[in-house]
């Protein structure tokens, strides 16, 4: 079963007019892959993604059978188990025009690791390779594919940005989110020190080696606090969950926000 959203009505519902830069691709369907952590912990982020695409007048397809891309198992070395998830993902998404996911590490997994995972299996390799070419991270899809930098969102406050590692080093995304943040009306954008240094999440690493993980995170959190921003924005919920966890423990008022929520605002 596939859920489709009507997007024509949302336009009428009084959204701000998108900027001139907007290059709408009316015929294009966008298929959503909502990462598992967003699905169960931060569903607001998924909803924000829906709002953004509705605002841009795109047809959204959400395959409700989706679960996980397999990254947790893959990163821990459990390739057999990761393959189960990967094959399932390929079956569900391979007929999509373009798949958009609000998580850089999942896109990195599908784009860069799926073909590697199936390198000894010609049939699945071909399917993985073809899929790897049509999955995009949210900000990459907005800026590079749609050519949109201003979605007409507004936010009053100082924002800093954290570069997630797989997003930055894995799929090379760094300017796109910055362009989008800068174009949000009312935002004062501040670069924190070492925005491109890892936050210490590392998946299972954060649980297996908590002392190292939190030592790294302490420094990230310090850089966020020192930046003077009142909100930290990122594109990967894993990192944001990590940062959110420590800011909350420290009782800090700094907000942690996925970029989709900022852009939908």
């Amino acid at each position: 079963m596939i859920t489709k959203y009507s997007t024509t009505q949302s336009r009428k519902a009084g959204f701000t007019r998108p900027s001139k830069k907007l290059n709408l691709m009316h015929n294009k369907n966008v298929t959503l892959f909502i990462q598992c952590l967003i699905d169960c912990l931060y569903p607001d982020v998924g909803e924000a993604v829906v709002h953004i695409f509705q605002k841009l007048g795109l047809t959204i397809i959400y395959p409700p059978d989706q679960t996980c891309c397999g990254q947790p198992a893959f990163n821990s070395g459990y390739k057999k188990e990761a393959k189960v998830a990967a094959k399932r993902f390929i079956r569900i998404f391979e007929n999509a025009d373009s798949i958009v996911c609000p998580s850089g590490s999942c896109v990195n997994m599908v784009r860069n690791h799926y073909p590697q995972l199936f390198r000894n299996d010609r049939k699945w390799f071909r399917r993985a390779l073809s899929l790897s070419k049509k999955i995009f991270e949210l900000t990459e899809y907005l800026v590079d594919i749609l050519g949109v930098e201003d979605i007409g969102a507004g936010y009053h406050g100082k924002i800093t940005y954290h570069d997630s590692c797989h997003l930055l080093y894995g799929i090379g995304i760094s300017n796109q989110p910055r362009k989008l943040i800068r174009s949000v009306k009312g935002v004062q954008f501040i670069e924190m020190k070492d925005s491109d240094r890892c936050c210490g999440f590392g998946g299972a690493f954060s649980i297996k080696y908590p002392e190292i993980s939190t030592a790294i995170l302490e420094e990230k959190v310090k850089n966020i606090i020192d930046s003077g921003a009142d909100a930290v924005v990122g594109c990967d919920i894993g990192c944001l969950m990590n940062i959110h966890g420590m800011l909350s423990r420290k009782g800090s008022p700094i907000k942690v926000m996925h970029i989709a929520r900022l852009l939908a605002g």
């Binding site: 909502i34 959400y62 908590p210 969950m241």
Partner: peptide, 25 residues
């Protein structure tokens, strides 16, 4: 428990995105 030595974590949401998507629809 390693996670919560120096960090909190958000509880699982009452409604998953999948349920929410269905509701919005």
């Amino acid at each position: 428990h390693g996670w919560t030595g120096k960090r909190d974590i958000l509880p699982i949401s009452i409604e998953t995105f999948k349920q929410r998507a269905k509701r919005i629809n």
